[in-house]
Design a binder for these strands. Sequence first.
DNA 1: CATGAATGAGTATTCATTCAT
DNA 2: TATGAATGAATACTCATTCAT
Lengths: 208, 208, 208, 208
Amino acid sequence: MCDDSPVLARRRSQAERRSEAEAALLKAAVRIVAERGLERLTLADVGEAAGYSRGLPAHYFGSKDGLTGALAMHIVRNFGRGVNRADKHAPGFERLLAMMTLYFDSAWKDPLTTRALHAVLGEAITNAALRETIADLNARSAAAIEDSIRAGIAAGEVRSDVNAHVTAILILSAIRGAVAQWLTDERGIDLSMLRDEFLDGLKRRLRA
Amino acid sequence: MCDDSPVLARRRSQAERRSEAEAALLKAAVRIVAERGLERLTLADVGEAAGYSRGLPAHYFGSKDGLTGALAMHIVRNFGRGVNRADKHAPGFERLLAMMTLYFDSAWKDPLTTRALHAVLGEAITNAALRETIADLNARSAAAIEDSIRAGIAAGEVRSDVNAHVTAILILSAIRGAVAQWLTDERGIDLSMLRDEFLDGLKRRLRA
Amino acid sequence: MCDDSPVLARRRSQAERRSEAEAALLKAAVRIVAERGLERLTLADVGEAAGYSRGLPAHYFGSKDGLTGALAMHIVRNFGRGVNRADKHAPGFERLLAMMTLYFDSAWKDPLTTRALHAVLGEAITNAALRETIADLNARSAAAIEDSIRAGIAAGEVRSDVNAHVTAILILSAIRGAVAQWLTDERGIDLSMLRDEFLDGLKRRLRA
Amino acid sequence: MCDDSPVLARRRSQAERRSEAEAALLKAAVRIVAERGLERLTLADVGEAAGYSRGLPAHYFGSKDGLTGALAMHIVRNFGRGVNRADKHAPGFERLLAMMTLYFDSAWKDPLTTRALHAVLGEAITNAALRETIADLNARSAAAIEDSIRAGIAAGEVRSDVNAHVTAILILSAIRGAVAQWLTDERGIDLSMLRDEFLDGLKRRLRA
DNA sequence: CATGAATGAGTATTCATTCAT
DNA sequence: TATGAATGAATACTCATTCAT
């Protein structure tokens, strides 16, 4: 920090090295999970794919379950960051539509993260260790949608007889299910068509 | 060996025993997958859980991939059989509503199969060997919905400006996503509430 | 069993194959432990040394702890069988002396089992999983000595004011300690001299 | 570096810190070995248990073998120091009895060191690197006993027909074996009873 | 001097698969 | 047909060791 040496590539501190390596490992893990699934992810592969040793993932994450958990957190955090870019719109119907668009479009723009996310979502159904992390993600995702619906109602943009809570969960459900089907059959399913029809239905159903 | 019973009868009995055992193995596999996931399913466990030897699953299904494939088929077939009970209604809006209800209620009534199905759906995202089976299931499921929508349009029960194909996919998406969220958080998500709200929205959106 | 085929090398039954392999594995394990100690025993080495695959020990004993436990049992059983050959003498002072002689001489005659036994005895001090097995061996070994002392007292061969229980434990202690010292320094310690002096002291101390 | 304090004082303080840390590491190692055994002792654990870094033990002792050796020496030295407190008695039968008492009582008073010592004694049987250290300990321990026996003979307190050398080894054997049995079954074995009976037998056997 | 990041070899462990009975 | 013994490859995991800070 207080090192003024003129060396351009300043030597990294231990903490920097550590977090740099950790980030690289998680990035590599995302790619591998997206391509092969959690089941066929090996600790050694992650280390090598990240340009480190075969042993480093075990050293950092302790066990495969540890890596899986950290990976879920990482994906969820990354994903949340992406969706939150919709908050340039004021809460309300506009933001809701922007969020929905982002959900669909991020699947298209970043299929790696999307595929990894859905692999983790699927795993959470039969893996108690991940369930809480994913349940929490789901709850927060639905809550963000719910907030926009309520704001829309308050602003008179959204019909006031809508059950914001349940509707939010169903909206999240539809997006998740649509993306999952697309991931299973990218050629047979036209995601942009699903997006347009979905947004259309949303307007029809919610608009005051 | 020294059994003198008529050959035909004997053959039949062996064939019966075989399919009986096979059914028992698949049933055991469904339970294990529902409880622990495909990753933690082992051939030996399936054999023992079904009351047979550790070696029988390999004997019948050849390999783990063979079992996985047969299992996916079995779940898909079972599932389809359940949903098709809606066909006592004539094709049209009534049958559509009945099918939707069945989708939700079968999750509640048979959480084991449901959980196993969703484990397989999740796996298909990153497992090419299952993708086709699942893509096919998805296509047929959506097609059944689409048929009812079209019949509804023809009967004048459903608005004629509805895009039957895309809407059917989105309907399937919403159900799948809703059940998936419920499976991840059975206490936090009220499935029957989701069902009612979903059916309500459906009527509002589709009814002529 | 009821196979009367004239083949000399009759095909072994599955159960025979299994127990044969298990015996071979344990025998190999004894040798490795005697030579290198429990710490440097690997499951793969045991399998290979026994002429089987590297994976078989894990397959049979489940884990290294499992093997260690089975090994302790096996050594203890083998050892007990050896010492019990003293029972051709009637219980009493003669049998006691014969047992003591056997203890010392079996160390000399079968240093492999002896070394392995003492490795296990040492391990039991800091390994709770073995403690009970070894505590039981110790209790039974001391009890056998105690029985002979009591019989000797009853027969008037042994002084009646001897505390049979505690003396038996101390006798076992002395033998164990003597053999342990010999194993640590075979050149510096003359075991036969220890044996003779020990037997001499025993007579002096116990004889009526 | 930029410290202007007298060099000598500084050196001394660093040397002190070094030996302080080394002592703390060895103390921690003794506890870990007593509780878990040499096999389950890790360098990192020792460092952390001593309140230092995970890397310090490797820094000081070079390798695990280095630590093991230093630990054996440390335990042996500590142990010898304890027993030598008997030298307030003049050499002879009294000192012998005092030494024996100390052997038993130190096991009771400091079970941690005792357990660690016996773990090392057990390991020495199959570990050539420790054998010499332990053989030397054994030889010196027996020699101390032998000296007292000889002094007792010279003073006319001990029977002159006793083979001092072999008897000393057997005495050490009995104590070691007794403590080992107690360590394996603290509840089932009454060490103080063994001590009393042992001392009693000793008097009867050796006293002139 | 002291820390802790990173490595990689060693090993336990799991399990699909093959094969003898 | 059915069992289960045996194999061996795959992989998680541990930890001594080295090295940069």
